[in-house]
Design a protein around this nucleic acid. Structure first.
Lengths: 353, 353
DNA sequence: CTGTTAGCGCATTCAA
DNA sequence: TTGAATGCGCTAACAG
């Protein structure tokens, strides 16, 4: 019956270590997993021998026996992967790191609509992280019936989530512009048809209102998808009789585009028009002037998504929680706050409101 | 023996469909996999029933039986994930898409040094994609003994690889600068201690030599790790008696930093100093002026890495191949070629040498 | 062409 | 405390 002696070459199984110690595989299994009763002595012997032979559990075998995989799915929608630069990559980095700490792995897939159900049906993952706010809610709710789910950069009733505190972040950014003396502040975005951007819009309005300023519809401009979004959007504002004296952009790319449009119109940033972005990504230090932006802790978002998901694996019925990660305004040159204070490059300065 | 009737609720197995059709599980298995002899009729019946029941193969079961997983590991080193913006993310996107076409999934992990061996030992993957040229070669060679391996954005003797044609890409970029009339061209990089960057350096020298220009050591500047690399590097050149009249940077981030340093010194891009970058990433359209850069087809690189790896799974002993993906120079404003020709934004123009 | 038998590596009853 | 038996879902070799 026994067909595969593995003295030299093949992969080590619990049976190998059982035979080496004259024990049964079940005892070895218990010793390795600290389950059931095993004498201290044999436990020690087993562990030592496992170490010596370089034993590693076969996830296929264990998975079949336990109906689990120690894999978590990390899914994004097609568009987001492409458009968002390294945004979701960094979230995934944080997620991977945290998952690894607990022996879990990340199975990455785009095209969540078809792949999320597949990953679950094929038993490739124990739970799902669904990243981005462009995934159809029905998909998410359906997935949630089969397996624990945490959404990231998104938020839905009844679903565990890790999201940016977009409203407060935007509020802080706009309040900062107001503190610089700007009164006519535009909002520039790729689109408003997006949860994150609409929350940032909400923060923008809230800040204006809180400071007694009017929310002027003509100062709100949407662009087009892609890297030209901010450029296109801002150009629409150029036709206004009274130009804005500041721009709050829904993300860095929109901000960078706005800066280009502003300069092309012969105006100066920040002197004629100040600009603040959102995300504080790779772009921010390199625009001219360097971009003041709302910093988003992407790595932490990934980390917390995994922590919550692992918890959910153990306690599937615990009530959903919503985690909001705060932001931090990083001041560089584009908002004008550093105008009279010398250099404006380097990493920027974090400030309170 | 039979314990789990799954009429309503649980996951569907080949046994369920076997029972529904009064067949044996093995026949069902053969029918589903087109293996062995099965009558057309039963094959059709089985497939229909599988469809009807919503059957999905359990990868754990199949994996245990076939000693395979239909998973590919995608590993990057720690640093690279962070520093490279979306570079490896886009490669992974292409890889995932292609893998999915063949029913394979990507298991993502950072920290390749510890995780690559683990993924293999635990039997989580059938093969590995190792991305980036900062992974220790010994790691790669050791992994290669256990499982098929393809390296991406890297190249080692005896190992299958998919890499950028850095030399030609750099050559083309520098030749383009020369064609603009520039004779004193600097090379700016984060470091030379990196395969890609050193290949780009080689292309730089080759272009100079081919055009009868001297390779002047004092025009080569290394910076520091991080987003300030190009800024720091270029400032070193400011002390030169004769400034360069063009800069070729090893990547976009270095180019963007150089542009900042140039403008800070009171000089103009491209009129005083022209700049060309490498990667054509998210940054390029947003520098001021927009950055002329060497486009890298990251998505395709991921795709080919997977295609080769899948091939290797079938033919483990086929001789290693090296795939070099060509590049394409995208001309925007920073190199001066568009100076008298009108607008310089949008997507840029691709050109031949 | 189809059914039977066995086993992949592991965890988990239940006996001993 | 340990061992023997069983099954997770699937594939593969062998009979029929």
């Amino acid at each position: 019956m026994r067909n595969r002696l593995n003295n030299s070459g093949r992969t080590v199984t619990i049976r190998d270590i059982a035979e080496a110690l004259n024990l049964s595989p079940s005892t070895v299994s218990r010793a390795l997993n600290n389950k059931g009763r095993v004498s201290q002595r044999t436990k020690a012997r087993v562990q030592r021998m496992a170490e010596k032979l370089g034993y590693r559990p076969s996830m296929a075998g264990r998975g079949l026996a336990t109906q689990s995989t120690a894999n978590l799915g990390f899914l994004v929608s097609e568009r987001q992967l492409l458009s968002a630069g390294s945004f979701y990559g960094e979230i995934m980095g944080g997620a991977e790191e945290t998952a690894a700490e607990s022996g879990y792995r990340l199975v990455f897939a785009t095209n969540a609509t078809v792949n999320a159900p597949l990953l679950v049906a094929e038993g490739r993952v124990d739970g799902l992280i669904l990243a981005g706010c462009e995934l159809p809610p029905e998909l998410i709710y359906r997935a949630r019936e089969l397996v624990p789910v945490v959404v990231v950069d998104n938020s839905l009733p009844g679903i565990d989530s890790v999201a940016i505190d977009n409203v407060r972040g935007a509020e802080q950014a706009v309040a900062h512009l107001i503190a610089q003396g700007h009164r006519r502040i535009a909002f520039v975005t790729e689109t408003l048809d997006n949860l994150s951007f609409s929350e940032r819009f909400q923060g923008y309005r809230r800040a204006l209102t809180a400071h007694g300023l009017p929310v002027d519809e003509e100062l709100v401009a949407e662009g087009v998808p892609g890297s030209e979004c901010g450029y296109v959007a801002f150009r629409k504002l150029l036709h206004l009789e009274r130009l804005p004296n500041a721009v709050f952009a829904a993300n860095d790319e929109a901000a960078a585009g706005a800066i280009r449009a502003i300069k092309e119109a012969g105006l100066k940033v920040p002197d004629d028009i100040a600009v603040v972005g959102f995300d504080d990504g790779a772009l921010a230090p390199h625009t001219d002037p360097p971009l003041t932006s709302v910093r988003v802790f992407r790595h932490h978002m990934g980390r917390w998504a995994v922590l919550r998901l692992l918890e959910l694996l153990k306690e599937p019925d615990s009530p959903p929680i919503e985690i909001r990660v705060s932001t931090s305004l990083v001041v560089r040159g584009s908002c004008g706050a550093l105008r009279r204070k010398g250099g404006d490059r380097g990493k920027g300065r974090a400030v309170g409101v």
